[in-house]
């Protein structure tokens, strides 16, 4: 798939992990077993995994025991791909806790694995660290400050981690920067039992992902962690949403599994032709941003240069 919409379908597999808390090596071995299921030609060109996919999410101070430099983590992913018996290249997006020389982040790496090389094509550090209620990320981690769009075999791609996509302006900016596919590693504790047949938090997630896909004409690939962590059940429901806002495949909330679908770049172009909201926004956005009442920093770059 290419950024201008030319190219054929790309097969995406989401590995919905249910890690044993803190047991990184064992969880890597489980990942190798999952890779063995998608290593054949045509099974998956891109593999997407959740936030904190191989450690568990609620780590508190143990995050410092388990955080890794990004290249170390990328090499581990590549080793599992090879140990699974795969010989062809693959691209893997995966959430992990990153140790960048003593500064710690909740990050997602996009890694291209080819022969003996693990090339980090992109690193996204979570922008919005939830620190309220059950969440305590900023007590242990630093915020990211950039959200980049990068070229992958999916075309122009952006990664947003969990709460990053709850702020509607973030995926909007990603789409304005050219992203056609959003990858969303997530670890979402499920809650809300008063409503219908799904947890209320799962319904909210689905609505957000489908609305974003439909508004901007992008594919959204959501990889959700599953399994209970100290009574808090991660809500899984990994899903792929097409550029018209329809969920094409979704995982159950409570099982480790693999869900797959082919992403067709022509769908993006057709969806945008039918509902050109992104084009309309590009036209009007400058006027909105020049509004003097907006509390935006003007003529300064220090905040974004960090």
């Amino acid at each position: 798939m290419s950024g201008n919409g030319i190219g054929g379908p790309v097969r995406v597999a989401i590995v919905q992990t249910k890690p044993r808390k803190g047991r990184y090596s064992e969880n890597l071995n489980d990942l190798r077993d999952a890779f063995a299921l998608v290593m054949d030609d045509g099974a998956a060109d891109v593999i997407v995994l959740p936030e904190a996919a191989l450690t568990g999410y609620f780590l508190e101070g143990a995050v410092y025991d388990l955080a890794l430099p990004v290249q170390h983590f990328a090499d581990d992913l590549a080793r599992m791909w090879r140990e699974a018996g795969a010989t062809r290249p693959v691209e893997i997006a995966c959430g992990f806790f990153e140790n960048d020389g003593g500064t710690y982040y909740n990050s997602a790496a996009y890694v291209r694995v080819e022969s003996d090389r693990a090339q980090v094509l992109h690193l996204h550090r979570k922008l919005f660290l939830p620190t309220y209620g059950v969440f305590d990320e900023e007590r242990f981690l630093s915020r990211g400050h950039r959200m980049g769009v990068f070229a992958s075999s999916l075309g122009a791609t952006a990664m947003l981690i969990c709460e990053d996509i709850w702020h509607a302006i973030v995926p909007t900016i990603a789409a304005l920067k050219g992203a056609r596919v959003l990858l969303v590693p997530s670890a979402a504790p499920g809650r809300g039992i008063e409503g219908g047949d799904e947890l209320e938090s799962i319904v909210r997630w689905r609505e957000i992902l489908e609305n974003i896909a439909a508004e901007h004409g992008v594919y959204v690939v959501y990889a959700g962690l599953t399994g209970f962590e100290g009574g808090k059940g991660m809500s899984g429901t990994s899903r792929i949403v097409d550029p018209r806002g329809n969920t094409v495949v979704a995982a159950p909330p409570d099982e480790a599994c693999i869900v797959r679908a082919a992403l067709d770049p022509r769908e993006i172009d057709l969806a945008r032709a039918n509902l050109p909201l992104l084009g309309d926004l590009r036209a009007v956005l400058p006027d909105l941003l020049l509004d003097e009442e907006l509390p935006l920093p003007r003529g300064r770059r220090d905040a974004s240069d960090r």
Binding site: K21, G22, G56, F58, L59, E60, G61, A62, E229, G230
Partner: peptide
């Protein structure tokens, strides 16, 4: 200060 989750 020493913070580890119950399932770690």
């Amino acid at each position: 200060f020493y913070l580890r989750p119950v399932d770690y």
